[in-house]
């Protein structure tokens, strides 16, 4: 039951407070970016859950595919030397 007057979908990101990044909270429909911001304010921050909002047209997001998850993320799996715990140091060495 779609007609051409359906409003596009926007993804909403909220910064909970200064010092934190914006996190995805959900989506909404709005005719344009200005209305998307206002609707996001009413929908996702009725109790001061944020100090800043981003809205992004849902179609503008490029996402990694869950089907290629293994091939995409596995190359990082065998590089344990990227973690500090990989290295054994004598106990008398401090601040390292």
């Amino acid at each position: 039951m779609n007609d051409r007057n359906d409003w596009p979908l926007w993804e909403v990101f909220v910064r909970p407070r200064r010092g934190l990044g914006h996190a995805h909270v959900g989506s909404l429909h709005a005719p344009d970016a200005t209305m998307a911001l206002r609707n996001a304010r009413d929908l996702y921050t009725r109790r001061q859950e944020g100090v800043s909002i981003w809205v992004v047209p849902a179609g503008a997001i490029t996402a990694s595919s869950p089907d290629e998850k293994d091939a995409f993320f596995d190359p990082a799996g065998d590089k344990v030397y990227r973690h500090p715990t990989f290295y054994t140091l004598p106990p008398e060495v401090d601040h390292l």
Binding site: R4, N5, W7, P31, D32, M35
Partner: peptide
Amino acid sequence: REAAVAYAAKQH
């Protein structure tokens, strides 16, 4: 809803 879409299209 129609007016909002028309306004958005015009701004665009």
